[in-house]
Computed example of a mutant assay.
Amino acid sequence: MAKVTIYSIAEELGVHASTVSRAFSRPDLVKDDVRQRVLETADRLGFQPNRTARRLATGSTGAVGLLVPDITNPFFPPLVREIQAAAGESTVILVDAQGDADAEASLIARLRAQTDGILLASPLASDEALREAIGSMPTVVLNREVEGIPSVVCDMTSALHDAGDHVRALGHTRVALLSGTIGSWAAEQRRAAIRTWAAGTDVVLTELGPFDASYEGGRAAAEALLNTDTTAAFAFDDLTACGVIAGLADSGQRVPDDRSVIGCDDVLLARAVTPSLSTVSTPNERLAEEAMSAMHAAIAGDRPSNVRLEGEFIPRQSSGQAR
């Protein structure tokens, strides 16, 4: 069987070979219907483009870097999977900062040498450190806003207000806010949302923390919670909320019979824990799609706009009637 080339595909379709080549290397320069015909024909004939040669010719690596702060946090694996799915033909190179903000600059430097662009998911380093490490590299930040860098974020404000209304409708008037890490963009946004909601109600808000965004941080938050008369609590995220539930159980308190607990992010753990966790859901699929769309635009030399998506409150078993 003769080897399938861009010339044989072009001959079958009645187009120039350069058109076939651009359909793979510069799809933005080819009409959608023509590119679709090229791809369908290439797939039917079993054509495999020589990506190595193409990358040498264009200077493109065909890879996108993805930096996450802590891969052991259950929020990130589903997001990584969605980004990989949204990346299409691009290879995604994942690096984990292991919770070390100071390590992020050197990890970014490694990614700059191997990729066409970098996605920073909830980075921990300061804005200044990130801008310095990135330089002119096409970059998109997820779940955080950094001045001067395109971002895709999930705004939890409306959903957290819905969660607050849900708690108030259940009769809770003494509510705790278990604050996340100081300096965390997400923690600041969520803290502000709960404060704004409480200010517009008759709820007495007690702020505790900050607590580490971890299971152990949640257990520490539970200990602090026991020293208050609050009947409901907002945790920074689902992992922290699970630690809160466990810590309360160790002290003989049951959720939601004695206290209600609200999480944030809707990771798998939120549905697996008993009782299942009332929480705010993050649209990971859309987040990944918007991030990759912005990434491709940045690589092409465009200036993508910042994107703000919205979360959704999901009531489950961890929130109940005030006693």
Rank of each mutant, 00 (worst) to 15 (best):
L67T: 10
L67D: 06
L67H: 11
V68I: 14
D70L: 12
D70Y: 09
D70F: 09
I71D: 00
I71L: 15
N73F: 07
F75V: 11
F76A: 12
F76M: 12
P77G: 06
P77T: 07
P77K: 05
V80H: 02
R81P: 00
R81F: 05
E82Q: 15
E82W: 00
E82C: 12
E82Y: 00
I83W: 02
Q84H: 10
Q84T: 13
A85I: 01
A85N: 14
A86T: 05
A87E: 06
S90F: 12
S90Q: 13
T91M: 13
T91C: 04
I93V: 15
I93T: 11
L94I: 15
D96H: 06
A97G: 06
Q98M: 08
Q98I: 00
Q98F: 07
G99F: 11
G99T: 04
D100G: 01
D100S: 10
A101L: 04
A103E: 09
A105N: 05
A105I: 10
A105D: 13
S106W: 00
S106I: 01
L107F: 03
I108R: 03
I108N: 01
I108P: 01
A109H: 13
R110Q: 15
R110S: 15
R112A: 13
R112T: 11
Q114N: 10
T115P: 06
T115D: 04
G117I: 01
L120V: 08
L120S: 02
A121H: 02
A121I: 07
S122Q: 00
P123R: 10
L124F: 06
S126Y: 05
E128N: 06
A129R: 14
A129I: 08
L130R: 09
L130C: 03
L130E: 05
R131G: 08
E132R: 15
E132K: 14
I134R: 10
I134D: 04
G135M: 05
G135Y: 03
S136Y: 00
M137S: 11
M137D: 00
M137Q: 15
V141F: 04
L142E: 10
L142K: 05
